[in-house]
Amino acid sequence: MLRMGEPISGFHLLRVMGSPGGIIHVREGLVISATTPASPGAESLLIRSGRVSEEAWNEAYTAGAPQDRLAAELVDRGSVGEAGLQVVCLSAVFDAAFAMALFGIEDSQPEVIGPNDVPPPLPVRPGIPREWLARETTRRLTITDEWRELGVTPFIRPTAVRPITPMQIGADQLRHDILVKANGRRTPRDIAFALGQGLFVVLKEISSLVSEGLLAIAPPPPPPVVEEHVVVVEDERKPPNLPRRRPGTSRIARLLGADLRNGK
């Protein structure tokens, strides 16, 4: 039986409990897929961003998905380059692990995948070493602590300060798109889905826009659940009721069974 922290072999699934949690697929100790409602998956990144058309996706899915060769069909049909596709799949996994950790991981449940289970549609090949994924997730979480100082958390619903004018040139397209979507209803996660961009990238741009005074943050509602590893800080100098993580408590490393000591 697979347990957190023990070596992982074979083909397994980690069901991550949290709000909203997610699913991590592990094959021979390597992470091949991670999906969560908190960040756009590879399909959303490819289609919503316009990198692959809906028609091309449908054709490749029909031809390839039943034989577990959707990625090969997308590449063979010239919809996307092989390297480009792997980059998107990789970034989707890193973004999902980051998003799950950022929103809070309560527990995880390993499950063995049988021959009749449907495999993830766009796996990373051969897969990501768990230590690498855990280390990158920890690095990203550390960066979010800086954004938290600006009041930027996953729970905010930012609003553009000024009316958005159409872009004259194509530079800073993402910043412009974020300003258009920031209407006071959408969280960073909602904006990431609407644009087909990663949550980390969107949060980074939002932080930049907030620090430049182009995005305003309304007082956020209290987070839905305050977990045991989250401490609510009552400090007059900082935005109220924002949860703060204690260093090393994101649980992502333990969940992945990754050993981050000695720089491994």
Partner: peptide, 9 residues
Amino acid sequence: ADEGLDVTR
């Protein structure tokens, strides 16, 4: 809902 929805949840 957007495509990230967990329908069961």
